[in-house]
Write a protein that binds this DNA or RNA. Structure first.
Length: 828
DNA sequence: CCGGGACTGGTTTTT
DNA sequence: CCAGTCCCGG
């Protein structure tokens, strides 16, 4: 019985062999999915009357899962048919709507789990969504085979049709590091100067092209001629090499699927039929390729629901097109738009501040967040200033301590910075005061050297053609396989268009390489051959251990006496432990190439330090926003490179920052900042002027001279920030001067005991307004004089030729000219 | 093969 | 200023 849209009764049957079967799971029947307390509609006969059934369900008994939704949210959940754009402001329950909507689709029997496509940007978001859906429908989330990131969904599709885009199904996915090494080889092969034409720059261009779904033939004339005139050629070569390697980069995952769909209408049609409902989270972050991908799939059946917030689009620089969301109604005809503006997160002061700030942007779809909840104790958004980043860190650290003594948890506090170099002063400060913190977004587990090496071994076993992996470990640990030998292998491989491993094997059969290298190479190849045989029989975790042992890799770190070595061995153990969750080595490798998860040590109570970008989607009771200065935020480079659009993206970033706060937001700016080693006096950010006076309080002094609840100043308008010189106003008030005096006294004490802070302070041009400059170290004259003869424990005797604070330049009699700290020399 | 010295570039980041 | 990379010398 086919429905009016032509859907066959059993969709599974229309897919090629093996396509539907492996999606089978116990819960792939709508009737088994009703949430408790809700009487499910009869099992779906595909098509027909979804809305009607939903209405019927609602009439008979409002299902549990709709409880507590506001009217707009409910509308978004129940609108199943046709294109739908949900404009969900910060903290308006976006994820809840998305997950409830899926629950609703399942509960009403409108589709089976495997017929729902739900796309997110990050693995974290996908996981969260899965967890929350599991809350509704129990263990049957596993049936949501198509809930994942754009990339993981694309891989799934590509594995089935790899041959159609010139790959084999077992293709590997290169990460940025592999990608760069490959590009470097190509640039070298072209004889370009790597210094002028850096692999990184080219990788950036490739990324840009792939973000726009352009193959080498489709890039513009201008870009084809970019990169020393051979942009197109290099791009084509790169793609060619990837194909020979049977590998993809991240961008390819989308690009290949788009190519696949365009060239194979039958396959596209299958997927169009399969995906009865499509949902995209964070739609404002989609790039052109993702948009095209979605368009292709949505052509069959326009039940597309995109959720996003144009005001939170902060990834323009990596290809996201705000236009996608701004043009939704135009691109998806008859689209319904629902705005979620009721905020459940922040106080009205915070919302008012954020709304007023973002209202300075043009070209928005326009939303105004509001809340009904009124908290009699709520405080305005605070703005405070500091002399430099160290004082900023110190003041914030002290405020955090105060909050802590008042019973606030550190987990509820975050510091959100514009650029990661800002984190340093906070880390330094928090370490010295013993305040627990955690940096979000640092280096990732799978990016560590030892992990990549280990993975390269595994890749070589699973994917013998993975040249990049082979290159990486062929001489790690050292086996005496130097450049000379490898060059031979490369030449043979290139000449015959065969994988390196194969070339190496052939080379071992000849007399062309030196006996020593030959033995070593043969040893490696024999090992791989043996491990590959064991792949069939041994348990993959055990095999992994065998590989690392027999290759000498573990041994290499065991004998390494550097400080990091033990940690690296631990990481290797951890790697093998994490493999246990997977069925096979291949399955594991696939997982890690896509899911570069971070370490999470959620256990302890700690302040979070992260960039504004990585804060999107999170919330904290208290948020500190340091560094609101022109040039840093908005960032100069954003202004220079993208002009007004750049400024607006920076402003959205500011909006994201402020809206992370539930109860307290405090913004900071400093008057001096060291940039590229140079001290520069800074001007308060224009965004400060864009905050509404009525909801913002200028905090006179900071840290132990005030803190929350005892604002000194008051009565200053935001226009105060307009001045070129912030010192004229608040910096000359009596309260400020008093604070400075007290602080200067305290600094003297602090710095006597702290080598680090005195070292860091020395370079400051502390010359403005004498009294403020009473920083002990900066003004202390050096005890040494020019020409003086001194002794250094390592360099011996010498004469001072220059003095710069506590740093001396000395002409040593034996060692020549060196720069040393005065504390390391003695008078002689 | 390691390490010191020269040189370079320094916003944001996921997959 | 500082961290990462590259190149060359011992």
């Amino acid at each position: 019985m086919a429905d009016p849209n032509g859907y066959p009764d059993d969709i599974e049957d229309t897919f090629p062999d093996g396509f539907g079967g492996d999606d089978g799971f116990p819960g792939d029947r709508p009737s088994g999915l009703a949430p408790s307390g809700f009487q499910p509609a009869p099992a779906a006969t595909a098509g027909g009357g979804i809305a009607a059934r939903a209405m019927a369900a609602r009439r008979s008994q409002a299902p549990d899962y709709l409880e507590g939704l506001n009217p707009e949210q409910r509308d978004a959940v129940m609108t199943l048919e046709g294109p739908l754009l949900v404009l969900a402001g910060a903290g308006t329950g976006k994820t809840r709507v998305l997950t409830t909507r899926i629950a609703h689709i399942l509960a009403t029997g409108s589709a089976r789990p495997s017929e729902i496509l739900a796309v997110t940007f990050t693995n974290k978001a996908a996981r969260e969504m899965k967890d929350r859906i599991a809350g509704f429908i129990g263990g049957h989330v596993e049936g949501m085979a198509w809930l994942g990131t754009f990339h993981s969904i694309c891989v799934k599709i590509l594995r089935r049709h790899a041959e159609l885009v010139g790959l084999k199904s077992g293709f590997s996915i290169l990460d940025t590091d592999d990608q760069l090494r490959l590009i470097k080889q190509i640039i070298q092969a072209e004889g370009l100067d790597e210094k002028r034409w850096t692999p990184r720059a080219f990788a950036g261009m490739v990324d840009g092209w792939k973000n726009r779904a352009q193959t080498p033939n489709e890039i513009s004339h201008g870009e084809a001629a970019a990169f020393a005139g051979i942009g197109r050629k290099l791009y084509a070569e790169y793609q060619d090499r990837l194909s020979i390697l049977n590998a993809c980069d991240f961008g390819d995952l989308l690009l290949h699927v788009i190519t696949l769909f365009k060239n194979n209408p039958d396959i596209l049609a299958d997927y169009q039929r399969r995906f009865r409902f499509m949902m995209v989270d964070e739609y404002q972050d989609t790039n052109v390729a993702q948009y095209l991908w979605l368009r292709l799939l949505a052509q069959g059946n326009a039940n597309v629901c995109c959720v996003g917030d144009d005001d939170q689009s902060i990834y323009g620089w990596r290809g996201a097109e705000v236009d996608n969301i701004l043009r939704f109604e135009h691109d998806f005809r008859g689209a319904k738009v629902i705005r979620l503006e009721r905020n459940y997160r922040s106080t009205s002061h915070i919302l008012a501040a954020a709304s007023h700030l973002i209202s300075h942007n043009e070209g928005r779809l326009g939303k105004t967040l509001f809340t009904d909840i009124s908290d009699p104790d709520e405080v305005p958004v605070a703005v405070a200033s500091a002399w430099d980043s160290e004082e900023e860190a110190r003041a914030i650290g002290e405020e955090i301590e105060t909050l802590q003594t008042q019973g606030h948890r550190l987990n509820d506090i975050a510091i959100l910075v514009r650029a990661s170099f800002q984190m340093r002063s906070f880390e330094d400060r928090f370490v010295s005061m013993g305040l627990n913190y955690r940096v979000i977004g640092g280096p990732r587990f799978y990016e560590r050297l030892e992990i990549r090496d280990a993975l390269a071994y595994f890749r070589c076993v699973v994917q013998p053609a993975d040249d990049l992996a082979f290159e990486r470990i062929v001489n790690t640990p050292k086996r005496g396989l130097g450049d000379a030998t490898l060059k031979l292998v490369h030449e043979l491989a290139r000449a015959n268009r065969i994988p390196l491993m194969e070339a190496a094997f052939q080379l071992c059969q000849t007399e062309e390489i030196k006996p020593k290298a030959r033995t070593a190479l043969k040893g490696v190849l024999d090992n791989f051959a043996r491990w590959r045989r064991e792949l069939e029989t041994a348990k993959h975790t055990e095999l992994a251990e065998i590989i690392l042992d027999e290759s000498g890799y573990t041994e290499m770190w065991r004998t390494d006496r550097s400080a990091e070595a033990p940690g690296r061995l631990d990481n290797l153990k951890e790697l093998i432990r994490s493999m246990e969750e997977f069925e096979s080595m291949a399955g594991f490798l696939e997982h890690i190439s896509l899911v570069m998860d971070r370490d999470s040590e959620e256990g302890l109570d700690a302040v979070s330090i992260m960039t504004l970008h990585s804060a999107k989607g999170l919330e904290f009771d208290t948020v500190f926003l340091p560094g609101w200065e022109e040039g840093l935020f908005p960032h100069q480079r954003a202004l220079d490179e993208s002009g007004k659009a750049g400024l607006e993206e920076e402003r959205r970033l500011a909006y994201v920052g402020v809206t992370r706060a539930k109860k307290r937001a405090k913004i900071w700016f400093t008057s001096n900042r060291r940039i590229h080693g140079q001290w520069q006096s800074s001007i308060p950010s224009r965004f400060l002027d864009e905050l509404p006076e009525a909801h913002v309080e200028i905090v006179e002094s900071s840290s132990n001279y005030g803190g929350y609840g005892s604002y000194g100043g008051g009565g200053y308008g935001a226009s105060r920030f307009d001045g070129r010189d912030p010192f004229q106003s608040s910096y000359s008030t009596p309260g400020w001067q008093r604070a400075q005096k007290a602080r200067a006294a305290q600094d003297t004490v602090l710095e006597r005991g702290s080598f680090k802070s005195s070292r860091q302070r020395k370079a400051g041009p502390m010359t403005i307004e004498g009294e403020l400059v009473a920083k002990s170290v900066a003004s202390t004259p050096s005890p040494y004089s020019l020409g003086e003869r001194v002794f250094h424990i390592k360099f011996g005797y010498g004469a001072i030729s220059a003095i710069e604070g506590n740093k001396l330049t000395i002409e040593f009699e034996k060692a020549g000219q060196k720069k040393v700290l005065d504390s390391f020399v003695e008078k002689h």
